[in-house]
Amino acid sequence: MQRRHDIDALRVIAFSLLILYHSAMVHVADWDFHIKSTYQAQWLQYPMIALNRWRMPLLFMISGIALGLAGIEGRRWRFAGSRSLRLLVPLVFGMLVVVPPQTFFQVVAHYGYSGGFAHFYMLYLTHGLCRAGQCLLTPTWNHLWYLAYPLPYTLLLLAAVPLLRRLRERLGDAEPTRVSAGLLLALPVLWLLGVRLWLAPRFPETHALLDDWTVHAESLPLFLLGYVLATGAGFWNWACRLRRRTLGVAMVAIGVELGLRWLGHHPPAGPAPEWASQVPWYTIERIARATYTWMALLAILGWSRVLLDRPFRWLPYCSEAVFSWYILHQTLIVALAWWLIPMRLGAGVEATLVVTGTIAGCLLLHEGLIRRTGWLRPLFGLKAMRHAAAPRPLPQPVP
């Protein structure tokens, strides 16, 4: 099957946005993070909300699409073994090596911990990080929580391949009819709306896998849907054709959500009109959120198919590098912020140094160490090194 460069490029872009997002978490007001700057801005919430609504749903949908394009049906359980190793090894390594510095700087900054890293690390390994009756559950995976989720999703998908394959065959390569297109536009929005109205208030997001019902209800259907739609030429043609309209609807929807949030923080002066108390503002905001999430996903898939499905020279390198950058980036962000915050350099200088320092650190560690060291590669999710084939002996002349 022909390589889908747009899916590879989307994966690189989506993971790259995490550097900006998690760097902004240091400076956004009213949101918890491992370390917080003295320079905080509430306005950052609005672009981060606009990004946050689709960044993780997109990654889960891309993961499903990638499986649908990989042709795994004939080697399901062999693929399950290799997939498990490629996800579990970096996850365990990250929890034991990459993530602990984040927690160390967190307890130093927030809890006044004064011990050294060696003493802290023993506490980290033995669940000993408690203060005033509050305990941090360690070892933890922090930003690496995403690695824990595709594995059970993949195993579930592999078990359901016979059913999902029949569904893919029924959809075929024809573009959706008016009825099926309407369902494809409406049903995901209704599902996401139900998750936000019913599940989210009862089961807050935890990123702890076993009790994270809201995230599972949102992410798993998108993962499976990505697999089902991956090879349907009709769906991709339809998404391309509707990309301007889905983008327009997405922009209106996020405008409604952010506008209602802004009014919640800045209510108009004077008494509110009587009719305003009768309007279900919370439900309207949830409808706008669900609509924005799905329409943004459709718009992104459509536009990327048009603009990104080409063999960019940077794509093979970035596709390999993105996994190690993902594993490294948040630890670098927290470490740089912890070092820079006491200098009080100003908001712009501090934020710029955190972002550029993180990019430089990821580049140096990946290029100079990880990708060139055979035993490190699988620890960061990279495939084993390909050794050059031994040269063939020159043919000897016939006597």
Rank of each mutant, 00 (worst) to 15 (best):
P378K: 01
E257P: 07
Y153G: 05
E175T: 10
P271H: 05
V189N: 00
L17Q: 06
G374Q: 12
T231H: 01
G259A: 13
F93A: 15
L258A: 11
A276R: 03
Y292F: 15
L151T: 00
S219D: 13
M385R: 09
E73F: 02
E218A: 14
S319K: 00
V97R: 00
L183T: 08
A288R: 14
F120W: 09
R55C: 10
R243V: 07
T103G: 05
L353F: 13
V28D: 04
P90Q: 12
E320G: 00
S63V: 03
L155S: 07
A181R: 06
Y121I: 00
N237D: 09
V189G: 06
R78L: 10
L167G: 06
P397V: 08
P378Q: 10
R4P: 09
P271T: 05
Y149K: 03
V161F: 07
M25K: 08
G264P: 00
P152H: 09
S37V: 14
M122D: 14
V249E: 03
R4D: 11
I300D: 11
A296R: 06
F120P: 04
L144E: 12
F104A: 04
P271K: 01
H265V: 10
T356A: 15
R76D: 01
G357W: 14
R11H: 11
Q106E: 15
D211N: 11
V256G: 07
W294G: 08
Y46V: 05
G361P: 02
V195R: 04
G255Y: 12
A109E: 08
H27C: 08
A272F: 14
A230Q: 11
A160H: 07
L376H: 05
W77T: 01
V249C: 13
P139N: 13
S277I: 04
L197F: 12
V98C: 02
G357C: 04
Y292K: 13
F323P: 01
T331K: 12
G302I: 15
P100T: 02
Q106I: 06
R386M: 12
L263Q: 02
W141Y: 12
L364Y: 10
R3D: 15
G361M: 02
S319C: 02
V97L: 10
T138I: 15
G361W: 09
V97T: 05
E218W: 00
V26F: 14
L199Q: 01
L151W: 11
P176H: 10
